[in-house]
Amino acid sequence: MSQQHLTEAEYDAITDAAAQWCMRLHAADCTAAERQAFEQWRDAHPLHAFEYEAMQEIWEVADHLPRPPTATVLPLPARRSWRAYGMAAAISALALPLAAYSGWSLGWLPSSYEHFQADGSMRQVTLADGSQVELNLGTELTYSNYKDQRRVTLKKGEAFFKVSHDSSHPFVVKAASGEVRVTGTQFNVWMYEDQVRVILLEGSVLVNSDNSHPDGGFRLDPGMQARYRRGDYQPQISQTYANDSSLAWRQGKLVLDNLALGEALPLINRYLSKPVMLADSATGNIRVGGIYDVTAVKSLVTTLPKVLPVYLTRNQDGNPVINSLPGTAPKS
């Protein structure tokens, strides 16, 4: 996260607003107009989104804390740091007697929180723990350092991780409905909508496709990969083949190795603001290949009719739709 030159009063004001928005948005009578006002506030400054994310995490974990027979509602302080203030917001909202505890020591609150995003170009960042991360185009993630784990949330896109080894402080990447847990290794995580693919290059990782079963998961060794979609009870495990080109994005390339369009579109669409659709399943069986620049994927779509027996239309939402020419589509 880039450094923000704010006064303590300005920072506290943002934290105050984030806590109030978090409580308001979780209220049953929150209106559509209020939600629209929140989105305008959130988008007005990067720190607004950072602080709201932190408050949202506090809200979620606080809901799982034990409740005593009687609970005392404590007033919010006028000015405090975001960690202390966030704890107070959770206390006020959920009536939990947490004032006597340290959020960090109990593993409820992170000691640091960072947000990273790669839009127009790929990006390399160093997390607070020293781990290195390469972000593909259109990637967004956050990093939080808790007492019992280092946590990355991959919100969208793809990232390659070189994790700083710490066996007592696991590194966890949350993606869609699952997570990848490591202590120190090199691996790649790709996510598009609810699809996730994990490729391990070095070390060992534990892949769990369903966070509602935290004790589950399958261990990968170097040269293995795991795929899952939201709702999968367990990931699909397989070996990566010798000429696998999934990591070509690190050199700025998208490699389509004779893939069916149905398989290729998730790889293409993650670079587009308007995803490409298929007219039908038979069109999805048409195969495509080639090596493309990740910054020019939009032009790839427009050239498809020149290299494949297809033509393009648009649906009512403005999405490009690939249609096969009559009599040319393989059977489903």
Results as ranks from 00 to 15, higher is better:
V205E: 00
T15A: 14
G138I: 11
F171I: 02
Q225S: 10
D232H: 10
G184N: 03
A260W: 00
R150Q: 10
A159M: 07
A54R: 15
V61P: 01
Y11N: 10
G120T: 15
I286Q: 06
G203C: 01
N269H: 08
A89W: 11
A18K: 06
E114V: 06
E158R: 12
V196K: 01
T126D: 06
I268H: 01
D221V: 12
W82E: 04
Q195K: 10
R314C: 03
L265I: 09
A78P: 04
T183P: 00
N211R: 15
T70E: 12
A95Q: 13
R181E: 02
N319Y: 09
Y292E: 06
S164E: 11
S168Y: 06
T31S: 15
V301G: 03
A226K: 05
F116R: 12
E134T: 14
E10W: 08
I58F: 13
L154D: 03
P320E: 07
W104D: 08
N188I: 07
S102M: 08
L47I: 11
Q316F: 09
A176K: 03
G130F: 12
E39A: 15
H213Q: 00
L135G: 09
V133S: 06
K156S: 05
Y52H: 12
E179I: 00
F161I: 02
V198K: 01
V125W: 06
F50C: 08
T283W: 09
T142M: 02
T183G: 00
A260N: 01
Y241P: 01
T31D: 03
G289A: 13
Q124W: 03
V255W: 07
A279L: 06
D244I: 09
I268M: 05
M191N: 02
P235N: 07
S204A: 10
Y311P: 04
K274V: 05
Y52R: 11
K147M: 04
A88V: 13
S168I: 05
P77Y: 07
A296P: 01
C22I: 02
I58S: 04
V125L: 09
W249V: 08
E34D: 14
L200T: 02
A62T: 15
D215F: 00
